[in-house]
Design a protein around this nucleic acid. Structure first.
Lengths: 182, 182
DNA sequence: CAAGATATATAACGAACCAATATATAACAT
DNA sequence: ATGTTATATATTGGTTCGTTATATATCTTG
């Protein structure tokens, strides 16, 4: 079973107080974003339950202007529960790729379209790689963060390289199919 | 938005008639298993709706022994819907890894435990790689399947290699932390 | 100053996942 | 031959998740 959203939130809060919105940002941009995910619709209910269970507390919002921002802080009980979760056996990794599902029927698709979606994806990955490489040089976080970002980089490079080196095989097969069809 | 289970089922059925159970097996073992997933609890409701919508038909079960097995076949309408889905822009890839979440706190964990879970994961990946390499030589399927399996292999190798080459950095950081704590 | 972008929170619906259950046949060991 | 385990198959019910629409208040910028 995968780690649930409650635990993910505890993980973020163990690094410092944050609002629901800021937690969300961590999963969109931070080092955690590569291998974890959680949207608003999961985070807010999770925070509510964590609050009810005493795993986190809500800080009194500083009286100035904005009345709505709620800052959360992890409690000792919360840290304990987090630690327990971290020392449990991790579930297997999961890869989900619609592109790969599509490409498994690649030889049946229009060669032009095939070529385009593969190229687009290569561009996406190369862009992410460049961003990560730039970040690598600036302020680095914990050893754990460095490790995880390095893994992200390694995987993205492997994917981009594989797409570049093998796309012609698939496009060639699609071309042959489309000629047979005439 | 990710491709839904209905479309995944159509994809499997486009390769030949199958029962719900057999479809499930495809996502557990076949080439599709690396980048897609669907459990019984999703497949059976999906088949029911596909049936209602005329995307698939149920074959009359061969009268022998087992009365329960239901074989499904894709209809022309179903092929059309599948084709539409395949030519839509694919959603970004998604990686979920509890191990990476845990390791992002790696320097705070007991070094021994850290070493063990990383080693276990390397073993898992090496085993998967060996299995794939063995299959690679035997009967190969479509060009699309070869492409997708090749991608799986490339990623698994990248992950295993990264873990092997960088695990000592993380374990070293954990050792220092645990000594500081004394 | 107006307009858009950003930060923030929430509810509601539907999709999907997990666990429990039920049963029939095949295979295998004793 | 018989009891037991494994395999193939289908279903449902509860829980969790993700998506989307909605609502405001602040910040930024032209």
């Amino acid at each position: 079973m995968m780690i649930d959203v409650k635990t993910l939130c505890l993980g973020v809060l163990s690094r410092g107080d944050a609002s629901g919105y800021e937690i969300r940002k961590e999963f969109e941009e931070g080092p955690l974003s590569h291998f974890s995910d959680a949207g608003f619709g999961s985070i807010y209910p999770a925070l509510k339950r964590l609050l009810d269970d005493g795993m986190i507390t809500m800080l009194p919002h500083s009286g100035d202007g904005r009345p709505d921002k709620k800052l959360y802080r992890i409690t000792p009980a919360g840290r304990h529960v987090l630690y327990q979760a971290l020392t449990r056996a991790p579930a297997p990794d999961k890869l989900r790729s619609d592109l790969m599902f599509i490409l498994s029927f690649g030889h049946l698709l229009p060669p032009r379209h095939l070529d385009r979606i593969i190229n687009d994806r290569i561009t996406d990955y190369r862009r992410m790689i460049a961003t990560l490489e730039a970040q690598e040089k600036t302020a680095q976080h914990t050893p754990g963060d460095r490790f995880v970002e390095g893994m992200g980089l390694a995987i993205y490079r492997a994917v981009a390289t594989y797409l570049e080196e093998h796309r012609h095989e698939l496009v060639a097969a699609a071309l042959m199919e489309s000629q047979v069809a005439e």
